[in-house]
């Protein structure tokens, strides 16, 4: 899907969140000089095209006790990765799941799955569940815990040039 200028204005206006008022879309539409219907139609089109993944609440998982996370990495047989990667993504405790290239010999892993739990011990239990799911298709694995946040800035839409 190609985004036009109006789509980009909608993204800029909503990437910080929706207003908590009874008619949030009407308020955003008014700010953008659009009709509420027109805004809603565009949001539906953006969602259908996958530009909007979903409209939802993201709870702060730290405040809900999910304070531990680990980047689990797996060396999965190439011919099984599409099928098994999706099964790993389907697990409710996996927040990101990607196939990425190996960097041999240092880095034999091609499946990355971020695991979240209440404690490091729980994350290790979840990791064992992923290992069970992958079975013999997995030739090796590791898990990387973050020890420090060195930099954190949000990813936001850049202003269009020109």
């Amino acid at each position: 899907m190609t985004l036009d200028a109006t789509d980009r204005r909608i993204i800029e206006a909503t990437q910080g969140g929706l207003p908590l008022v009874p008619r949030p879309y009407a308020q955003v539409a008014a700010e953008l000089g659009l009709a509420e219907d027109a805004l809603c139609d565009r949001l539906r089109a953006l969602q259908a095209a996958g530009v909007i993944r979903r409209i939802a609440v993201a709870p702060n998982h730290y405040k809900l006790g999910m304070t531990a996370n680990g980047m689990s990495v797996w060396d999965v047989a190439d011919e099984r990765i599409a099928e098994l990667g999706q099964q790993v993504g389907d697990l409710p405790f996996v927040s990101h799941c990607y196939e990425r290239p190996r960097a041999l010999p240092l880095w034999p892993y091609n499946l990355f799955a971020m695991l979240h739990g209440q404690s490091r011990d729980e994350v290790e239990v979840l990791r064992a569940q992923v290992a069970d799911l992958l079975g013999a298709a997995c030739r090796g694995s590791d898990i990387l815990y973050s020890t420090r946040i060195l930099k954190k800035t949000g990813l936001r839409l850049r202003q269009q040039k020109g």
């Binding site: 899907m1 985004l3 993204i11 909503t14 990437q15 910080g16 969140g17 929706l18 908590l20 949001l43 953006l46 969602q47 095209a49 996958g50 530009v51 909007i52 993944r53 979903r54 409209i55 939802a56 609440v57 993201a58 709870p59 702060n60 405040k63 809900l64 990813l155 839409l157 850049r158």
Partner: peptide, 24 residues
């Protein structure tokens, strides 16, 4: 929802965009 957003129990409420689809 206002209280939970204020207390930062809610990190974000609204559309979640596919970063790559937005360009870049």
């Amino acid at each position: 929802l206002e209280r939970m957003r204020e207390a930062r129990v809610i990190t974000r409420f609204g559309p979640f965009f596919d970063a790559a689809a937005m360009g870049g």
